[in-house]
Computed example of a mutant assay.
Amino acid sequence: MTDKTPNRQLLDNDTLAAWIFLTPALLFLGVFIIWPIAYLFYLSFTTGSFTSAGIRLIGIRNYQRLIFSPDFWQVLFNTAYFTIFTVIPSLIIPLGLATLLNRSFALRDFLRTAYFIPSITSLVAVGLGWRWMFQNSGPVNALLTALKLPAIDWLSSTTWAMPVLILLSFWKQIGFNLVVFLAGLQTIPQNRYEAAELDGANPWQQFWHITLPGLRPTLIFATVTTAIFTLRSFEQVYVITNGGPLNSTNLLVYYIYEEAFGLFDFGYAAAGATILLFFTLILVYLQLKVWGESE
C-alpha cells in the first residue's frame, strides 16, 4: 500500500499539470470553434434576423428551401466547376516547377522567390488589379487588339468570367504549393535517384517511380488544403464579378454572404454554411483516411 501511494500522488500531479496546460487551448477551441459551429447549426433551423423581432425555430425548412432552390444548385455547380479547375492545375504545375527548381542552377533562388510572392499578396489588392486588366479597355484586350484578335468582354460574359476567377485563384495558390512540394522533395533520399541512374532509369521513370511515391503524403496535404482554399473563395468574387453575370460566378461562400448580410436571412445562410462545413469535413476525413493508409 505504501508503494502505490507515491505513484498515485505522482499521477494526480501529472494529471493536474496536464489540465492546467490544456485549459487555455481548450478554452480557445471551445469559444472560437466549437461554440460558433454549434450556434451555426442552431441558426440553420431558425428564421428571422437580429434586426427584426427576433428569431424562431422552423425545423428543416431552410434545408428544404436549399434543396428546391435552382439558384443554390447553380451555385453548387459553379463552386464544383471552380474548385476542380483550380485544384488540378494548382497541383500539377507547382509539382513540375518544384521538380525543376529542386536542382542547382544560377537563377534558382530568384525563381523560387518570384513564384512565391503571389501567395503572400493581398487577395483584395490582386483582385482589383485583375479587374483592371480584364476590363473592356484593359491591358488584356489591348494586347488582343495588338495581335489582330477580337477583344473579349471578359467580366460580362457568362463564358469567360469564371475562367478569369480560376486563373486568379491558380496564380495565387501556385507559390504556396510550390514551397510545399519543394519541402516534400527534400525528404526523398538522393541515393534513390543515384541507384536508379545506375540501373538505367530515365528522368521520367525516376519521377514516376521515386518522386511521386515519395511525395504521396505531401500530395494529399496539398490537395486538401488547395480544395479548402478554393471552397472558401470569396474575395475574388466580391471584388471582380459580384457573382455575375447572371449568377455564373456566384460561389457558395459569396452566396452565403449575400443571404446573410444582403437579405438578412441568417437562418437560410446558416443552412448553406452548414452544407459548406459538411463538404469541408468530408475533405478532411478523406485526407486523414488516405494519409493513414499511406503510412
Rank of each mutant, 00 (worst) to 15 (best):
L251N: 05
L178F: 12
L111N: 01
F176W: 11
L198K: 09
A151V: 11
T5P: 04
L101P: 00
F181E: 03
F264R: 00
V284H: 07
G54I: 12
L40G: 03
S122G: 09
W73V: 09
F181D: 10
I220P: 03
A273V: 09
T2S: 13
V164F: 03
P89V: 11
K148T: 05
A125P: 09
I256H: 01
P24T: 06
F85E: 05
P139A: 12
L283W: 04
G138N: 01
D109E: 15
I88S: 06
T83D: 03
L144K: 09
R216D: 00
D14P: 00
T211L: 00
A222G: 09
L91C: 00
G129N: 06
L27V: 12
S69V: 11
L16Q: 10
E194P: 00
F176H: 02
P139I: 15
G267D: 09
L215I: 06
V75Y: 02
I34N: 03
T46C: 06
P150M: 04
Q236A: 12
L246T: 07
R108N: 13
F68R: 12
K172M: 13
F264T: 02
P139R: 03
N7H: 10
Q135D: 10
R65Y: 14
F82W: 10
L286I: 13
N247M: 11
P139N: 01
G96Y: 00
Q74T: 12
L10V: 05
G272D: 05
N141K: 05
L215S: 02
S119I: 03
I220V: 14
A151H: 13
D12W: 14
L111S: 06
W291G: 10
V164E: 04
L155T: 15
I92F: 13
I84W: 11
